[in-house]
Amino acid sequence: MSSSVTPTSKPVKTTGLHVGDAAPGVRKVDPILIADGVRRTFGGLTAVDVEHVEIPRGAITALIGPNGAGKTTFFNLLTGFDKPDTGTWSFDGRSLAHVPAYRVARMGLIRTFQLTKSLALLSVMENMKLGAKNQVGENLFRSLIPSIWRKQDGEIEAKAMELLTRFKLDAKKDDYAASMSGGQRKLLEMARALMSDPTLVMLDEPMAGVNPALKQSLLDHILDLKASGMTVLFVEHDMHMVRHIADWVIVMAEGKVVAEGDPHKVMENPAVIDAYLGAHHDTDLGADSEHVEALKELIDDEQ
């Protein structure tokens, strides 16, 4: 399987993103998103407790960690879909604390969801057009007079068509989004996010449930985002993909950032191995020799 997801061209990695040693919370040369003391508890469970983390601009950053590490919760907090107990975080120098989700999106920070949220009974084209920002026709009173919004709507449609062609969904433009396969919906969701010309795209498990052939094209699309100047932050479990396209990796475990670094080095970090495999993964629990010896002696004594 791994071989089938390898893109044809080798992606160009961005390096020199951090200042000093690659430790958790390391400073970045040009951070786009900075989070400080973000903490979220659900009853007695601390889901996220991030002291300090910076996301580098213009690069692809992967957020990895075992299940339950708090990656998706952290995503929700950053995008205004959930409110933290404490903490401050800023995007492009503007504070995002207490900013509702729709305003976060308007600032240029667009996210996708782990379970795709395509608008099922809207056509693919309508899904795309919904993604465009600052539409005059979205005001109730202006919507009544088509001549006010028709021109802009035409421009939006042209742009949507261009993106759909790029994502090879143009043939489906008049179908209901509900009629598409899971992988196509992932593509649609990503294309829709691009309608607003975001500066930071946050993808929550873009590869989950996608077949290898489609993974290939999704990978290329993510690399394209970087090439066109966007910053990408994504959550992913597929380590091969992370190694392949990420410029920087942030590892979370039990709500905390436990390691950071470039994808090849970070995988060798003991904290990362502990997070995934447990701290005692190389201890032999099967035969405890000391006890066995003691037991043998006891038996001998009795005889």
Binding site: A105, F113, E138, N139, M195
Partner: peptide, 19 residues
Amino acid sequence: PWGRVVKGIREDEDAVRAL
């Protein structure tokens, strides 16, 4: 476009919020 937003909300309001 107003109607489009409203129909989007019917399908999934979080997705529309994220846009």
